[in-house]
Each structure stands twice: as C-alpha cells, then as structure tokens.
C-alpha cells in the first residue's frame, strides 16, 4: 500500500511543472584561491616522450545546498576522461550513488586509483579502446582524489555530495543554483580539501537570493 502511494507521488511529481516543485534561485560569488602552477611531468626514464606542455587548471569551487533530500531512483552517468595526461574535468561534483566512467583518450596506458576513505579503488592498466569503459559507483559522500599510478603528476578530484542541488562556479567564482525547493538550508561553498565555507539561507519560491562567500 505504501509502495503504491510512493509510485503515485513519483508519477504526479514527474508531470508537475518544475516551478511548482522548486523555483527559487541562489546566486553569488565565491572568492577563489590563486591559480596554482601547472604540474611538471617527470620524464626522466621515458626516453621517448612527446614534448607537450601541461595546461594550468584554474581553481573552481562547488556550491551546494546541504540538507536531507530524497535520493532519485537513477542518476545520469558522469565521465572523467584522461586526455593529454590530465584529468578532464579536474574537479567533478556528483551526487552520491552516481556512476563515473573513466575513458582513456591518450595513446598510452593510464592506471587510475584512489586511496581516499570515501572511495578506495584501483582500475588497473587499460587501453583507450577498452570496453566496457572502466567505471566506479561513488556511493559515499566525501572527497575522492584521483591519481594515476603511471603518471605521477596527474591529479583529479571528485566531490561526492548528499544533495542533488549543486553547481560549479566559473573561473571568476560566480555561481547560480536554480530550481531549488523552498525551505531553510545551509548553503556551502567547497573551495579546496581544507576549505568549505557555509551560510544559512532561507529559500522562498520565486525568489532569487544573492549570497557571496568572500
């Protein structure tokens, strides 16, 4: 009986206009740290190497609404590629339970691994054309640092969140979170592994709230 009720609720919610479910917006700006230097690739014993320069990845922040939200039945699969010996994107925020694929677009092996408590895994060495594409389901919230066992300089981050309401800032720190459900929440800005700023917000239907994280 209870299951049937939930199914009805799900069916109704899928046909309701988004505006009725959540139409509030929060926008603002996060003060980002200074750009880091691009990494240096150690090529000492790779006597045959390409002469590419690794790109600088500008710092970005993730802004999210913290709270207890129902977990959707299914989540879209996300992707972190390895291209030109870097992770793209370098920072990926996802909701807990999301599957992330790691396609290798370089013409060499990669070996992605993480020792982070939120997700410990090692995908081993795999070819660019390997199918199925190696993937991992991130089911526990927290920060996951991606590394490559072959290319020491490679670093990537996956921020696993317990909320569906998150967005990445642009390189100037600006953000805009749309279609938020009304309520009293904590708005958080994740800046790096040691810095997460937060502010209490009252989100009201049809309203645009401006919040800055200086």
């Amino acid at each position: 009986m209870r299951l049937r009720g939930l199914l009805w609720l799900n069916a109704i919610s899928s046909v309701l206009p988004a505006a009725l479910l959540g139409s509030a917006t929060v926008e603002g700006r996060v003060e980002l740290p200074k750009s880091r230097s691009a990494p240096v690739q150690a090529k000492r014993y790779e006597i045959v190497t390409k002469g590419g320069v690794l790109s600088t990845q500008p710092p970005l922040a993730v802004v999210y609404l913290d709270g207890a939200f129902p977990r959707p039945a299914s989540l879209p699969t996300k992707e972190v590629t390895q291209k030109d010996l870097t992770f793209i994107p370098a920072l990926l925020p996802i909701e807990a339970g999301t599957k992330v694929e790691f396609p290798n677009l370089d013409d060499t092996y990669h070996n992605i691994f993480s020792y982070s408590p939120a997700k410990r895994f090692d995908l081993g060495r795999y070819r660019p054309e390997e199918r199925p594409i190696p993937s991992v389901i991130f089911d526990k919230p927290g920060l996951v640092t991606l590394r490559c066992d072959i290319h020491e300089h490679m670093r990537g981050l996956i921020l696993v969140l317990n909320t569906p309401y998150f967005v990445m800032t642009d390189t100037a720190g600006r953000f805009r979170l749309d279609k938020l459900p009304p309520g009293h929440y904590t708005l958080k800005a994740w800046i790096d592994s040691r810095t997460t700023k937060e502010k209490a917000v009252d989100v009201k239907n049809g309203q645009t709230l401006h919040v800055d994280f200086p």
Partner: peptide, 15 residues
C-alpha cells in the same frame, strides 16, 4: 629530484 620544463621542447632533470 629536480625536473624542469622550459616551453615544450626543453626538459632538464637531476637526481
């Protein structure tokens, strides 16, 4: 170890 990259063409290392 010291690894230095100058542009895309020059690489220096020392151990």
């Amino acid at each position: 170890f010291l690894d230095a990259q100058l542009g895309s063409q020059i690489y220096f290392f020392a151990q």
